[in-house]
Design a binder for these strands. Sequence first.
DNA 1: GTACGTTTAAAACAGATGTTTGAGGCGTGG
DNA 2: CCACGCCTCAAACATCTGTTTTAAACGTAC
Lengths: 233, 233
Amino acid sequence: MKSSPLSTDESAREPKYSETATRILDAAEGLFVELGLEATSLRLITQQAGVNLAAVNYHFRSKDALFEAVFARRFAPWASECLHQLDVLEAQIARGEAHIDVEAVVMCYVRPALALSKDPLRGGAVFVRLFSRVLVENHRQVRESLSRDWGHLVSRYTAALGRALPGLSDEEVDWRLHLGFSVMFHAFAGNDILKLFGRSAVSARDPDLIVKHLVPFVVAGIRAAPGGRSAAT
Amino acid sequence: MKSSPLSTDESAREPKYSETATRILDAAEGLFVELGLEATSLRLITQQAGVNLAAVNYHFRSKDALFEAVFARRFAPWASECLHQLDVLEAQIARGEAHIDVEAVVMCYVRPALALSKDPLRGGAVFVRLFSRVLVENHRQVRESLSRDWGHLVSRYTAALGRALPGLSDEEVDWRLHLGFSVMFHAFAGNDILKLFGRSAVSARDPDLIVKHLVPFVVAGIRAAPGGRSAAT
DNA sequence: GTACGTTTAAAACAGATGTTTGAGGCGTGG
DNA sequence: CCACGCCTCAAACATCTGTTTTAAACGTAC
């Protein structure tokens, strides 16, 4: 197979930006994820992109708008890929070709994330890290510009997972999805809590290895019996 | 009970700092977690603390040193509390009073985090969020000043969990600990991926509620059967 | 009272930041 | 040839940054 089934002709979707604008986006993406929004100066970006300083204010309106553009460029195709995975799964279920299963729903998230991590043309693992930055440092603009698409995606996953977990209340399903997504998300982003120490074997960033250890963990967690008793035991 | 069993007389451990220094630390802590290190100016800190600008460079050496102090003030007692929990558990096991159990190990992490989240005197949930920020935006200095203590803590948890999971390879144990800590950490920090959308019931920040849903998830995930097959299924 | 170390006050420092300006270059269509 | 939009360039803009400096107030011990 020469063309990945996950990609829908990347070269044709991205002529929105001129060459200099793309150079700026690429440089900014790497620097934003490495240093953060505030710590990355426009002069550093333009210097690394090999363009003039004023170019960023010409092509994008401001530094904040640039950040939003950097994020949106990667997010849109990824989100649509997630939706596509859910469509395929639900079509298979409707035709009786597949069972509604927790693991199947999880894989609808894992596969796009895995493909993203392996494809440098779409930002690779860098974008996932950028996404995680946006999450903890919550930038207003990005959150607002995302909330609609993201909300749609979440409700789709919630519905699918709810069908795979009959007998669980909506609140339980929300929590399972929240916790499951949280692990997967930060695992792909490489936010290893243990790696601060360094000797962890986890620091290996091989996406396939991540999936191998991640999926059983998440599936088992989502399938867990609800906790009845309170916290202070 | 008037004094929490988790706290060891907070009032006596913290006279290291003068009153103005403490005011600076408190203001800086809130602003750092809200805006980030780079986006928080010293003028904003001193203004909110009601002290003079030069005071921060007098009491602490520099802005970076201030950040380190802000972090260290909360981290040290929390880490020692985690170690204490492990000590207690292992002592119980040695005396045959408790089984070595995954949930018991998990609770050694959850209890201090829960106590921290509920105690505003020790930074409350703010510190956990600050911790999560330090994690994704990895500040060199903080990481270096932490790596020793943090490494010690991690190896203690690893050993305890490894004993609770006989038959699993060291690599597997590392992964389980990594994934389990990751969920717990970000759950307490309130880094809800779903909350970007807003309608999630998860956005309720009640620590006890977090624990109720979190612990079964994590325990089941850690106990999961290792995943044999590769990613691309 | 005087000298001393400690803490605070206001001002100034040099440098970096995001943004804007105005002039010029390049290519296309008249 | 000219003219027009698109784009790039170097320079300057005002503002904010962390840090330092200078002076003054405070409490304490001689």
